[in-house]
Design a protein around this nucleic acid. Structure first.
Lengths: 257, 257
DNA sequence: AAGTGGTCTAGACCACATT
DNA sequence: ATGTGGTCTAGACCACTTA
């Protein structure tokens, strides 16, 4: 357990001990002191060195296994995963974060911000509203490195978010604005389909009519499963690529042995 | 804890108790005895009724929370998630399974099956091979309800899979064939982008040139992180829609309080 | 024989919600 | 005051791998 000598955990911190242990192990991975394929400290080793219970050490390691950073082999140990496998390929991010992660500078040009009564019925349904409810519509051209990337139209229930009309949505992220008002989106359902650029969109995206484009519809939810936002985004096909990691479903046992 | 009266757990089964509890709770959800939004049995309640430790009951419930079937609210209880939230929207499936899930009848027309020396360098890299290695190429037109759905080209390392040349890949699934030979793919990385149908593809997909299409590239891996298969699929834009569920990354605390 | 992850127990204290 | 999930402890037994 030499590798653990340097750091310890604070037992009376507001941060759970297992979280502190997760961080310690992640730091070992990120700093390269633990390489892919290499064996991570054992649960008992961590517990002894840090003076904590094995179950607490195990909670930390299990969490890292669940997130794909480590994998465990019964009888042998816990090992560091291949980096490719632990890429967060399906994280809920804002356009701003997404572009930054791709190494591009995000930007926005506000095209429309207002209240509307007319929207496809699908949108009311996604937000759990009736056609009588008002909607806030935010229409923006999103840029990456100052070049047009996508056309984005967001819909939110008007009643809760009228304050958004006062917000600066060109320089700041909509998600940041929501969070600073205590609204946190934790889940989203996305549907992607291929389409082509139409005349009204052609000029704004600076590509010719008929150019390939990715149409993404996203419905975002809070922790309490309340739908807050419906976004329709039209990405230039030549500039945007969507990545995902798929996993085979873990069979849930418990039937007949 | 009335709701638990009927079933019990077998303490000496080879199936872990927490797995049995997971199954019991899932059955309550699937059968409708527990509805979305409703409170699930408490950890202590489960423990008392089934005569197990609370930590074991908690392991079951935490697992169901992690998988999105339940969500917990500290101080209040654990509740059944909205069904939409627990759809396995990003499961690794074969074309065959995917179409069946969409209620369509899958089919395949074998266009080419053979060994090749010439493939884009990207494919060798994805499979961890060198250009000197031989590749198996399977080119198929995939249909759904007898209508063209996508053009699919699969590449596999030749050395391990020459037996595939004898396989019936029109009526059967490639994944099924692999599994029956002990090769199980458990993870895949997918990249999606919008494109348009070109002349060579137009006739096979029975859509005109310039029609929107979704290009999907998938690299599939075994449990041991060995890349087995690279697939390039061109889906008709009007027939195929890709769905995904995104989650906000759980912040990993542990820095300064 | 020693070490490992996987499972399980019977308690405990906390912050928070509800009543 | 009671019940809830969240965290933590100090043990235990098992099946497995490695030496």
């Amino acid at each position: 357990m030499r590798s653990f000598d340097q750091g310890g955990v604070q037992k009376n911190s507001s941060i759970p001990i297992y979280s502190q242990v997760e961080r310690i192990v992640m730091d070992m991975i990120d700093s390269g002191r633990l390489s892919p394929g290499q064996r991570a400290p054992s649960e008992r080793g961590i517990a002894d060195t840090l003076g904590i219970s094995r179950m607490t050490a195990r909670a930390a390691m299990s969490s890292l296994v669940a997130d794909g950073y480590l994998y465990s082999v019964p009888g042998k140990g816990t090992f560091v995963s291949n980096p490719k496998m632990r890429q967060d390929l399906l994280e809920l991010t804002s356009f701003t974060q997404d572009m930054r992660k791709r190494g591009l500078k995000p930007g926005a040009k506000l095209l429309e911000l207002g209240v509307t009564d007319e929207a496809p019925e699908k949108i009311y349904r996604a937000l759990g509203l009736s056609a009588a409810d008002g909607l806030l519509r935010i229409h923006r051209l999103r840029t990456a490195d100052e070049e047009p990337m996508c056309l984005e139209t967001s819909y939110l229930p008007k009643d809760y978010f009228t304050w958004l009309l006062e917000e600066d949505l060109e320089s700041g992220s909509l998600y940041r604005a929501l969070e600073s008002h205590g609204v946190e989106l934790v889940r989203a359902e996305e549907h992607l389909e291929a389409t082509v650029v139409r005349e009204t969109e052609s000029e704004l995206l600076t590509v010719r009519v008929g150019y390939p484009a990715l149409l993404i519809e996203r419905t975002s939810y809070t922790e309490e499963d309340k739908a807050i936002e419906f976004v329709k985004s039209l990405y230039r096909g030549d500039r945007y690529r969507f990545s995902a990691m798929l996993f085979k479903r873990r069979p849930r046992r418990g039937g007949l042995p």
